[in-house]
């Protein structure tokens, strides 16, 4: 199945997080720019079909080849890349007029992932849409590095939590099915009332007891499920502690490794640069915000955490 590791040319990063407006596309454009400035070949893919706007962070507009032609007319992914104006950085847009992520067929999805892994680039960064649609979750899980962005507000943190849980649930479901355990995960969850399962931690414990042979797969899956967390639009110094708090809660309640990659402070210059259509990292190189983003890109690249 596609969301399990396969051989690939470059490294794939995915950026998700459930809630819209938390700065996913902004972060993708900036991390891409940061890596490209370090002489890496980077390709961005806007998979926020239906709400694609990654191109606008580079001041690009007008009709361009997009994923529409991939899905509807069978173009190859590498033919859809076009330059962003930033050296070493190209983009595949998602402004798929007639499509949303909900109406992609399973076979199209597999073809997309296959071509993504074969794309000749060092880093491929995928911008995901909001919500927890199964296609969004699969694209998130197909990456080598999974990144979530949230702002320090209740609705956004809540959606981020639900997003990670859903992604984990999806991974359990797919991996155990592929290992010959059938629909053991969905069945247990469907019976959750009778079984007294309140959350995903209860589900894991139930599976361990009910089907002990799944234990080693569950361990492997939990140990390998690593999410990098970015907190965006910090306006108050107290919000800085949120990263470590989220990390702690995920580890203690769910046994998950959330790597706190860093925070980005709120900066009016961001929307100004978007309005002017200039890549933020180039137009505001010396701003604290730009430095924070560069640190975040570095932390994710080197699997480090912010302190």
């Amino acid at each position: 199945m596609s969301i399990e590791p396969t051989a690939r040319k470059g490294e794939i990063w995915s950026v998700g997080g459930g809630k819209g407006g938390t700065g996913k596309s902004f972060l993708v454009s900036c991390i891409g720019t940061a890596l490209a400035r370090k002489k890496h070949q980077v390709t961005l893919v806007d998979l926020d079909l239906g709400g694609a706007n990654l191109h606008s962070f580079f001041g690009l507009s007008g009709p361009r080849p997009s994923l529409t032609t991939f899905f509807e007319f069978g173009s190859r992914l590498d033919e859809l890349r076009f330059p962003t104006g930033v050296e070493n950085l190209s983009l595949i847009t998602g402004n798929a007029e007639s499509m949303t992520s909900t109406n992609i067929q399973f076979s199209q999805k597999l073809k997309l992932y296959r071509q993504m892994t074969q794309l000749n680039t060092q880093f491929l960064i995928v911008d995901l849409g909001a919500g927890c649609h199964v296609n969004t979750l699969d694209s998130f899980l197909a990456a080598d590095r999974m990144i979530v962005v949230t702002v320090p507000e209740v609705p956004s943190v809540e959606n981020m939590y639900v997003f990670i849980k859903n992604a984990l649930f999806r991974k359990f479901k797919v991996v155990l099915k592929n290992r010959g355990f059938g629909n053991v995960v969905s069945d247990a969850w469907a019976d959750r009332r009778a079984l007294g399962l309140k959350n995903i931690k209860d589900l894991v414990e139930h599976l361990r007891q009910d089907r002990p042979e799944t234990g080693s797969y569950l361990d492997e899956l939990l140990a390998g499920f690593k999410v990098h967390l970015v907190i965006n639009q910090i306006r108050d110094h107290r919000d800085v502690g949120l990263g470590l708090a989220v990390k702690s809660i995920f580890s203690k309640y769910l046994g998950l490794d959330v790597r706190f990659a860093g925070t980005i402070e709120y900066d009016d210059a961001v929307w100004k640069s978007v309005r002017e259509g200039r890549p933020f990292l180039l137009s505001h190189q010396t701003s604290p915000c730009a430095r924070q983003i560069e640190d975040i890109a570095d932390n994710i690249l080197n699997d480090r955490e912010a302190r």
């Binding site: 209740v154 809540e158 309140k198 989220v246 309640y253």
Partner: peptide
């Protein structure tokens, strides 16, 4: 402090737990 006086943001993360 984190696990005793939970802020509203933290509460949404721990509400499923007993």
């Amino acid at each position: 402090k984190l696990y005793t006086d939970e802020s509203p943001v933290i509460k949404v993360l721990t509400s499923e737990f007993t």
